[in-house]
Amino acid sequence: MSSEAWAETLILIGVLFDLLGTIGLVRLPDVYNRLQAGTKCVTLGTCFILAGAAVWAGGALAMKAVICMAFVLLTSPVGAHALARSAYRSGVAAWEGTVVDDYRGHVERLMHAPTPMKDEATALAQTEIA
């Protein structure tokens, strides 16, 4: 296969993963499950698309694509994690089919803790900017 065919294949795979992620976004029941689909599929899909672009262009652009991939791999799970954490702490309910919940105890401990911790649990951003 020529390099262009390789690039097209990679981009096609990436787009397919992105498509799966968006389907998951629509079908799954609650915020946390949707975040799962959104993060994993979209991160890998983006990486495949970038790899396709790197194969296609070569040289300087390929290097930029590789740097982009590293950044996406580092930052996108952090974004999902921050969203899930703040969603839980601001009281977004999990789906009723959730089987175990070890996190509830931790958050409730924070809520009943002395004032600064309570502030931290309820109003994350405000205390942090101080």
Partner: peptide, 23 residues
């Protein structure tokens, strides 16, 4: 593997998930 796993759960008509928060 994670992606194929999520793809299976999403495309399956019953969405076979059993979510939970663990420590």
């Amino acid at each position: 593997r994670a992606n194929l796993d999520v793809a299976y759960r999403v495309l399956h008509p019953d969405t076979p998930i059993r979510p939970g928060f663990i420590r």
